[in-house]
């Protein structure tokens, strides 16, 4: 049986309530858009496998509740992430201002080499725009992050932004990957490598069917 992926890692969607985190995720994994999506309570994730430079990359994307009150919970998941999307809504100045707070939480709770990108969602709602593209660019530059304006509604820049973060995470872990590829030549589980007790039964979980 052909293995379904070479490497697995975890990405995390962060940002204020209502900026469209769940919609971005559904568009990316299922190519669906539900305007009447329900609020996310707690956390959940979806998976998708991409191919980057000939490597089958399975990404596990964790979606979180945006309300401040839930942050005690969601912060517990930061340490497991290798990549983080900081998402704001271009029609909400407030959600953009809060990016600073989200970024500083990430600095505090996520692993040091975590990769981040900035995403301004709802780019289709041009007439309601409160945050100029230039502002997003400037902030991303200040943080040394890549920046995308996306629309889950029109499917604009969705695959691009997810793929970009996946590439960054791959690059950041490339050294380990190369070494391990030689030595193990089997499915790699970056997510597990970053944990203290993460040795998995690799044969059985590589064969797990995808339910995305």
């Amino acid at each position: 049986m052909a293995k379904q992926y070479d490497v697995l890692f975890r990405l995390l969607l962060l940002g204020d309530s209502g900026v469209g985190k769940t919609c971005l995720l559904c568009r990316f994994t299922d190519n669906e858009f539900h305007p009447s999506h329900i609020s996310t309570i707690g956390v959940d994730f979806k998976m998708k496998t991409l191919e980057i430079d000939g490597i089958k990359v399975r990404i596990q994307i964790w979606d979180t509740a945006g309300q401040e009150r839930y942050q005690t919970i969601t912060k517990q998941y930061y340490r497991r992430a290798q990549g983080i999307f900081l998402v704001y809504d271009i029609t909400s100045e407030r959600s953009f201002q809060h990016i600073m707070k989200w970024a500083s939480d990430v600095d505090e709770y996520a692993p040091d080499k975590v990769q981040k990108i900035l995403v301004g969602n709802k780019s289709d709602e041009e007439q309601k725009r409160q945050v100029a593209t230039a502002q997003g660019n400037k902030l991303a530059k200040a943080y040394g992050m890549d920046f995308f304006e996306t629309s889950a509604f029109t499917n604009h820049n969705i695959t691009e932004s997810f793929t970009r973060l996946a590439e960054l995470v791959l690059q950041a872990n490339k050294k380990d990957l190369d070494v391990l590829r030689v030595s193990i030549n089997d499915k790699l589980n970056l997510a597990a490598l970053e944990e203290e007790e993460g040795v998995c039964d690799s044969s059985s979980d590589a064969q797990k069917t995808c339910w995305c």
């Binding site: 517990q76 050294k175 380990d176 070494v179 597990a192 490598l193 970053e194 944990e195 203290e196 007790e197």
Partner: peptide
């Protein structure tokens, strides 16, 4: 040095597992 880069997992040996598990329970 390569193993050290991979994170703390590599250095947690069976003797310390119990400790880790207790810490996990605390978490």
């Amino acid at each position: 040095p390569v193993e050290a880069q991979r994170g703390t997992m590599a250095v947690v040996q069976p003797t310390a597992r119990r400790f880790v598990r207790l810490a996990v329970m605390g978490l």
